[in-house]
């Protein structure tokens, strides 16, 4: 597990780079943190570092957003906040998205735990103080983490 401390919002692009370096080999990244911890904000910064040209906005209502970078690569941004039943996620085809090999950034993954692939990156955000966040990055494999 690796950790980085974000002491102020103006350090977020630095933190995003740190997360990207550790995670780029896995396509599926899950983001954990309480409401207001800054999941969408961190994903915005990551997308910007990765060259996404679309506006990154919260997918709570639409469940998934698709973005592109200048080369035309797709990125998927999920939010399972309002999912109540695992089958709803199956029905929208999340497994096909996760198997697509494209980067998938997932907020509120707790709601769909059983559908996550064998290997993925877990990024958890903890609020230390008003402007300060601690970001932990770890690789999760079936049944374990390192």
């Amino acid at each position: 597990m690796k950790k980085i401390r974000c002491n102020h919002l103006d350090q977020i692009s630095e933190c995003a780079k740190f997360v990207i370096d550790l995670s780029r080999h896995s396509p599926v990244w899950v983001f954990q943190g309480a409401m207001g911890a800054g999941k969408t904000t961190l994903i915005k910064a990551i997308a910007s570092e990765m060259g996404v040209v679309d506006i990154v906005h919260s997918p709570t209502y639409g469940l998934v957003n698709e973005y592109e970078d200048l080369k035309g690569n797709s990125y998927y941004h999920f939010d399972f906040y309002r999912i109540e039943d695992l089958m709803e996620a199956v029905d929208m085809g999340v497994e096909e998205y996760f198997d697509s090999g494209k980067y998938c950034w997932i907020e509120w993954p707790e709601k769909i735990e059983g559908l996550l692939p064998e290997e993925f990156m877990k990024i958890s955000i903890r609020e230390v103080d008003r402007d300060i966040r601690e970001i932990c990055i770890m690789k999760q494999t079936n049944g374990g983490s390192k």
């Binding site: 969408t40 506006i55 990154v56 906005h57 919260s58 709570t60 209502y61």
Partner: peptide, 10 residues
């Protein structure tokens, strides 16, 4: 003009 993050309903 449009929202750059959350929708107002959200």
């Amino acid at each position: 003009g449009e929202t750059l993050d959350d929708a107002v309903g959200e």
